[in-house]
């Protein structure tokens, strides 16, 4: 579904990520792992379309999207939950979700809303409340639902468990599995490596802006470097 070849890019003349190749198959769940400053968020921004300078190939369902602006990529089916839960704080939860579907020009959003509420019943309870007044975990749920309302084929999540209580992490990761079960591909960026590897099929490990390692989640769990560096075993 997503094919990336020799992708380099950054915020200025100096590249932050270099020559990255990465694939996500139809309906697959893939993790992007790595320490701080490894270039995870930069890579996400390249996929989503908010990185100032990129070169290389990103093909989404066979179509080269490297030059497309962010809002066109959303229309193609790439939805993103940005790092740090950017919800529209003064809008109601319901309006936040509706903003996610704004580009679809369809009146029939009832079933999509119902799907979101089924995923996170908490969001249904809070739908009239201003999104900024929710707890961190609830805001994360809203951000995920907003991305789902765009009707994506690929959902990109940047550190969804960052700063959440362990119980919330489990709930968010559980939701990712359910989303994936609907046939939506997922790219999950995580620092919480052990819990991420339980959710995904495959993973890539990013180090200093390049892919250092890739494999199935089982392979990565057994890999010595991963165990030492990220799992602390």
């Amino acid at each position: 579904m997503l094919r990336m070849r020799d992708l380099s890019g950054g915020y200025g003349p100096r590249p932050v990520i270099s020559r990255i190749s990465l694939d996500i198959a139809e309906g697959e769940t893939v993790a992007l792992l790595g320490a701080n400053t490894a270039g995870k968020t930069t890579l996400i921004r390249a996929i989503v379309g908010t990185l100032p300078s990129v070169s290389g190939v990103i093909a989404f369902e066979g179509r080269d999207i490297v030059q497309l602006p962010a809002h066109r990529r959303v229309a193609l089916g790439i939805a993103c939950v940005p790092e740090g839960r950017h919800v529209f704080g003064q809008m109601s939860v319901r309006d936040n979700l509706m903003m996610g579907a704004y580009h679809r020009r369809t009146e029939d959003l009832g079933s999509d809303l119902a799907d979101c509420f089924a995923l996170f019943p908490r969001v249904r309870e809070r739908q009239a409340q201003a999104a900024g007044t929710l707890s961190g975990g609830e805001q994360q749920m809203v951000a995920i639902c907003r991305a789902l309302m765009a009707g994506p084929r690929l959902l990109v999540l940047d550190e969804p468990s960052h700063g959440l209580a362990p119980l919330m992490v489990a709930e968010v990761h559980g939701a990712i599995r359910k989303v994936n079960a609907r046939g939506i591909g997922v790219l999950l960026v995580e620092q919480n490596v052990s819990s991420a590897l339980k959710v995904v099929d495959r993973g890539y490990v990013l180090e200093s802006g390049a892919i250092a390692l890739s494999g199935t989640s089982r392979d990565l769990q057994d890999n010595d470097t991963v165990r030492r560096t990220y799992l602390g075993i």
């Binding site: 989503v48 962010a70 959303v74 940005p82 529209f88 704004y102 951000a143 765009a150």
Partner: peptide
Amino acid sequence: GRLGYMLRAIRENEDAAEVTGINT
């Protein structure tokens, strides 16, 4: 209308508006 909601989304959080699919 649509434009007003999009302007408000940009006011609230421009980064989020961009990845939500708004042509900011």
